[in-house]
Simulated scan of single mutants.
Amino acid sequence: MNVFDLSPAQIRNRLILRARRAALAAGTGRLPPARPPNRAGAAAVARVSVVLCVSVAPGDVVQFAESDYRYADGPLRLRIVRVRPDLSEWYDGEWVWLEGVEIGPDDQDGAFRPVLARVAALRAEG
């Protein structure tokens, strides 16, 4: 994967995450903001780091209903290749980025695709 495979939002998120990790490693005690400051003058909300806890691992096959993953176009069976905790941190533990291979109705491997899935829907077939 190279920088041309990422959307501008993904690149921004990666840069913010790197800056936050560098600030933690440097021990400055001050983190860069997760969001731009609120212009209305309201109190800023502090972002709490979320520890990702999912019950699936690479190699597992999961079945998603259309409502269980973003940008859905019907049910999906996916063989997980990788769970992306680095990008999933931004979804408050409710959604997780997965990378995997679609499995067709004939149990043949299909296209590789990233999926933003609801954590509550993750149950490995078995």
Rank of each mutant, 00 (worst) to 15 (best):
L24R: 14
A9G: 05
L116E: 12
P105N: 14
W90E: 13
V96Q: 02
A57Y: 09
A72L: 07
Y91I: 03
L17T: 13
E94K: 01
L76P: 12
E102A: 13
V81I: 11
R82I: 09
R77A: 08
V45P: 00
R30T: 15
A111M: 12
L15A: 07
A25Q: 13
V115C: 01
R70E: 15
N38V: 13
V119I: 10
R47V: 00
L17V: 08
A57R: 14
Q108Y: 04
P58H: 07
N38K: 05
R47Y: 00
P75D: 13
S88I: 10
C53I: 11
L24E: 08
C53W: 06
R18F: 12
A9N: 08
V61A: 03
Q10N: 06
A34P: 01
C53T: 10
P32I: 15
V50P: 02
V119P: 07
S55A: 12
G100M: 02
R30D: 14
R18P: 03
L31Y: 00
A117V: 10
P8L: 13
A25Y: 06
D60W: 07
P58A: 06
S67R: 14
E99C: 07
D5N: 07
A40V: 11
L52C: 05
R39E: 14
P114G: 02
V54K: 01
L116G: 03
P33Y: 05
W90L: 06
R77E: 01
A65P: 06
A43N: 03
R14W: 14
R20S: 02
G93P: 02
R77C: 08
D107Y: 06
V115I: 14
L31V: 02
I16D: 03
R82P: 02
V81E: 14
V45M: 01
R113A: 09
V54E: 07
E89R: 09
L6V: 07
P32R: 13
D73K: 13
R113V: 12
F64L: 15
R77S: 10
V115E: 00
V119N: 05
D106W: 04
G27I: 14
Q63F: 15
P85T: 14
V115K: 00
A65H: 08
R77G: 04
